[in-house]
Amino acid sequence: MSLANELRIRQLYEAVNAKDLAAIEGYGADFSEWLDVPFDMTSRGARAIIDPWKSWFDIFPDATCEVRSLVALGDHVVAQGIGRGTHLGTFHSPAGVIEPTGARMQVNFCDVYRLRDGKIERADSYFDFFGLLRQLVPTNAVAA
């Protein structure tokens, strides 16, 4: 099971990098949950997986994820890496609305998945929001 789940999540990141929304949507189910940890926001249901990715692509249309490590144990998979993109869309963030800056960004992430029957049952997505914010907002506007 671990090997199949590892492959499934590798394929998810391939779909993310290809902006294959149909493939990403296929990871969701009625029982799916996605937690954006920096935002303390949980999405639930069949669109719980596609909606966060779609929102990210709306903000960073050229977004990519470089997976640096991926480990599977039973029904859990942990992926760690670097997300990159160009800020071309309005970002409704916990720090407020950030209008497009055209800035290139690079952010560390760690996603923890629990799978059931090839679908994502739960995803906890951790990323360095403060580091991202510092790249998108002028330095003097973000307190150190």
Rank of each mutant, 00 (worst) to 15 (best):
55 S>I: 04
54 K>P: 07
88 L>C: 07
82 I>L: 11
69 S>P: 06
79 A>G: 07
69 S>I: 05
51 D>T: 12
85 G>Y: 01
62 D>Y: 05
59 I>W: 03
70 L>D: 02
76 H>I: 03
61 P>N: 06
81 G>C: 01
70 L>S: 12
76 H>L: 11
64 T>N: 08
73 L>E: 15
52 P>T: 09
53 W>Q: 07
69 S>A: 13
74 G>C: 10
75 D>H: 03
50 I>R: 08
72 A>V: 13
64 T>H: 09
73 L>Q: 15
57 F>G: 06
63 A>G: 09
52 P>K: 08
60 F>Q: 03
55 S>C: 03
75 D>R: 07
64 T>F: 06
62 D>T: 01
88 L>G: 00
62 D>M: 03
79 A>M: 03
84 R>M: 10
85 G>D: 00
88 L>V: 01
59 I>R: 00
72 A>L: 11
83 G>A: 11
82 I>D: 00
67 V>P: 00
56 W>S: 12
68 R>S: 10
80 Q>H: 08
80 Q>E: 13
71 V>P: 09
67 V>K: 00
80 Q>T: 13
85 G>W: 01
56 W>I: 10
81 G>Q: 01
84 R>V: 04
87 H>V: 04
86 T>F: 08
75 D>E: 11
71 V>D: 08
88 L>W: 02
50 I>W: 06
72 A>R: 07
69 S>V: 10
82 I>F: 01
57 F>I: 09
85 G>I: 00
67 V>W: 02
76 H>F: 10
61 P>Y: 05
54 K>L: 15
67 V>E: 02
83 G>H: 01
88 L>K: 14
86 T>G: 11
87 H>P: 01
74 G>I: 10
70 L>C: 13
86 T>L: 12
81 G>E: 01
65 C>T: 07
67 V>M: 04
87 H>T: 04
73 L>F: 11
77 V>W: 12
87 H>G: 04
53 W>L: 08
85 G>E: 00
79 A>H: 01
79 A>S: 11
56 W>F: 15
72 A>C: 11
71 V>E: 08
61 P>R: 03
83 G>E: 04
79 A>E: 00
87 H>D: 04
56 W>A: 15
79 A>C: 06
80 Q>D: 05
78 V>S: 05
76 H>N: 13
50 I>P: 04
55 S>D: 06
69 S>D: 13
82 I>C: 03
86 T>P: 14
56 W>Q: 11
66 E>Q: 15
74 G>A: 08
63 A>Q: 04
77 V>P: 11
50 I>A: 09
81 G>I: 02
83 G>P: 03
59 I>K: 02
59 I>G: 00
57 F>S: 10
76 H>Y: 10
68 R>A: 04
52 P>I: 08
52 P>V: 09
83 G>L: 01
50 I>D: 04
54 K>A: 15
52 P>N: 08
57 F>Y: 14
54 K>Y: 14
71 V>C: 09
73 L>P: 02
65 C>P: 02
54 K>T: 13
80 Q>S: 10
59 I>H: 00
58 D>A: 15
58 D>K: 14
55 S>R: 07
60 F>C: 07
85 G>Q: 00
